[in-house]
Simulated scan of single mutants.
Amino acid sequence: MTILGIVHILVLTVVAFRIMLFTRSGRHKPIISVLAYIIMVSAFTEVIVHITMPATVSLAQVMMEAALALALIAHHGNVAELFKATKDGSKLSQLLCWTSQKKKRKTKTNKHHEVSP
């Protein structure tokens, strides 16, 4: 097993454990929960497969997984935070999180303010 293979296993273990140890104190979002579960199980499966049958791992693959690990660490394991692009969230975030809150539109009024002399 190469050093890159060992780094690959360590990074995937960090990804899986960071998601597994995340605790949510509010309302759960079903699609995000399923996505987090898929990422966690995939990472653990890849670790087991790589330990039992070592294969070649590219540097690009390890760097991509490391970027995911860093993002998850930065957001404390919150997968939903990875999809937020702005303060209100991106369209993808709204779709995945089932947010039905619509932005309130400012109503335009044609009232002219009178100034008293």
Score class of each variant (00 low, 15 high):
T2N: 11
T2Y: 14
T2E: 06
T2I: 08
I3G: 13
I3W: 15
H8Y: 14
L10R: 14
V11D: 06
L12H: 15
L12S: 04
T13F: 02
T13Q: 04
V14I: 10
V14N: 03
V15M: 05
V15R: 00
A16E: 06
F17M: 10
R18H: 12
R18C: 15
I19P: 01
M20T: 01
M20W: 04
M20A: 14
M20K: 08
R24F: 07
S25F: 03
G26H: 00
R27V: 07
H28L: 13
H28E: 12
K29P: 01
K29Q: 11
I32P: 00
S33K: 09
S33H: 00
V34Q: 07
L35T: 03
L35P: 00
L35G: 01
L35A: 14
A36K: 00
I38M: 13
I38D: 10
I39N: 07
V41I: 15
S42R: 05
A43L: 02
A43V: 10
F44W: 02
T45M: 13
T45G: 14
E46G: 07
E46I: 08
V47G: 08
V47W: 00
I48G: 13
V49L: 11
I51S: 01
I51W: 00
T52F: 09
M53C: 14
A55K: 14
T56H: 10
V57Q: 11
A60G: 13
A60F: 10
A60T: 02
Q61R: 11
V62W: 10
M63G: 07
M63Q: 14
M63P: 01
E65T: 09
A66S: 15
A67P: 02
A69E: 00
L70D: 03
L70R: 11
A71I: 05
A71C: 12
A71W: 09
L72H: 06
L72Y: 08
A74Q: 00
A74S: 10
G77Q: 04
N78G: 05
E81Q: 15
F83K: 02
K84T: 05
A85F: 09
K87D: 15
D88G: 05
G89E: 03
G89Y: 05
K91D: 14
S93R: 04
L95H: 13
L95W: 03
C97N: 10
W98L: 09
W98D: 04
T99P: 03
T99M: 10
S100Q: 15
S100C: 15
Q101R: 12
Q101Y: 02
K102Q: 07
K102L: 13
R105D: 06
R105T: 03
R105E: 05
K108M: 08
T109C: 01
N110S: 08
K111T: 11
H112K: 08
H112I: 15
H112Y: 04
H113C: 01
E114S: 08
E114H: 15
E114A: 12
E114V: 04
V115L: 14
S116R: 10
P117V: 00
